[in-house]
Design a protein around this nucleic acid. Structure first.
Lengths: 258, 258
DNA sequence: CGCATAATTGATTCAGCTCAAACCGAGTGG
DNA sequence: CCACTCGGTTTGAGCTGAATCAATTATGCG
């Protein structure tokens, strides 16, 4: 983890295949799954890792396929969606530092969902053999992975509860609020993805999303263009209903998904 | 793992606290998380394990609490439900050999859901320190846990997809079919839980469940009393819509939940 | 037997979907 | 500079799946 390789885009053949990038060790040092692991293991994993870049809209993993490595989101947004003909059904939105379908990659499952880059996305990929070897060798690495899986499970449960217990407008409001909190550093929070993808993630149609935006606007949360404006935090939180355990539980679990 | 202790109910103080049972090593040998682990580790875990019995309806873990051990369902059915005042929202139904909220117990999270015994249930409990120690020591044990967590994540994703993409009647039909397959050994499949709990698990009201039972009956799947009768398998499968990857993926992942 | 809890049935309401049309902004090309 | 797409978004009208509320009928169970 010492030498610093320069990151350079290797020109790709303009096809659907992702661009391959050089990987900087710095990228990895910060990753949650590397936390606290043995120095030489980190080096080994790094050697087995590569980087790929995906353009917005491109598919990373197709539903029904297995995942040929441990994918980690380095930057960008990836959505997990089940696509059946016309209908798309979003499950989760991954962002930087999240693991992509760790369960499927570690146990050679067929993925239930398609992973798709919603923005330009850089991923770090550790091939399965190396990951499995690391898993067998380092309990700490295993624990790191489990932690991330725990967080994703928690997100899934929240999603199930939201779908059952909250209205479309409440889900929307709560989601936008989380988005705002996640961008607390920026001057103004911004909606980073297309509205129809947001709709899919929240389990509603694009038309309904449009209407619900007006509803939440009546309760203190506006969206002008792409920027999100919280005019009355207390009011909108009240409106969205009880957020079970609003504290950043998932982030403590190394999950940054939306 | 040699001596066979007899299982005997220690009389409990009729309070809400569960009865404590003796644990037979045989119970544990068969458990997926013990698969392939070192002999002495198994013994250590067994020493740190106890058994508890819960009456139908009793609460095992309250939402908002942490879980003070690695709970494994030995027999019976446990539902994970979010309870808000009147409204109950089921997330998952655990059965024998499943892990109860492994994520919450390993990482001291506050549970999002209440775990409640729907039938008389026996659980094996390994205290958190022992589990953590085993995790730090045995990569195989860690892998076993991860496998189960993978399966539970998969179930959660299925649930999300079902809630979005299928009608109430389709969810009901598909669930009953899975129930039938899971009881393939028995002469006739039986509904093991109260209908209102089933409704909650499937994300519909009890009234709707009642009506949907009539709908699926029109499509080849009857429920007479508690017994489930499949009159026309092809028809009801067709009706329930595409089951993504119907093969027993979750069971391969050491998950037996419903 | 009688009480409490569970399940059904009916009537009504409503959130959210579908379909269709209008709108809008960003490229593109003349 | 303007006209013309073309995808994404918005708006409107109507429909429908499922929830709610209320009343009734089973089903235990002490």
């Amino acid at each position: 983890m010492t030498e610093l390789l320069s990151e350079s885009v290797i020109p790709d053949a303009s096809g659907p295949s992702p661009a391959r990038l050089r990987l900087t060790p710095r990228d990895c040092e910060a990753l949650p799954i590397f936390k606290g692991i043995e120095e030489d293991l980190a080096r080994t994993l790094l050697d087995a890792a590569s980087a790929r870049q995906y353009r917005a809209g491109s598919t990373i993993v197709r539903q029904g396929d297995t995942v040929d490595g441990l994918f980690i989101v380095n930057s960008g947004l990836v959505d997990l969606t089940r696509i059946d003909g016309q209908h798309e059904c979003g499950v989760l939105l991954l962002s930087a530092r999240d693991l992509l379908l760790p369960a499927a990659s570690l146990f050679d499952e067929y993925s239930l969902v398609t992973a798709r880059a919603l923005t330009t996305t850089r991923m770090i990929v550790i091939d399965n053999e190396a990951a499995a070897a690391a898993l067998a060798r380092s309990p700490r690495f295993a624990a790191n992975l489990m932690k991330a899986m725990s967080g994703q499970w928690r997100m899934a449960v929240r999603n199930i509860l939201d779908l059952n217990c909250r209205t479309a407008a409440q889900r929307l409001g709560a989601f936008l609020l989380r988005l705002v909190d996640l961008q607390a550093d920026r001057p103004a929070a911004v909606l980073p993805i297309a509205k129809r993808h947001l709709a899919s993630r929240l389990g509603m149609s694009a038309e309904t999303l449009s209407r619900m935006l007006q509803v939440v606007a009546d309760h203190g949360l506006y969206l002008r263009g792409r920027t999100i404006i919280v005019r009355n935090r207390a009011q909108i939180e009240e409106y969205c209903g009880p957020d079970p355990y609003p504290q950043r539980d998932e982030r403590d679990l190394d999950v940054f998904a939306l």
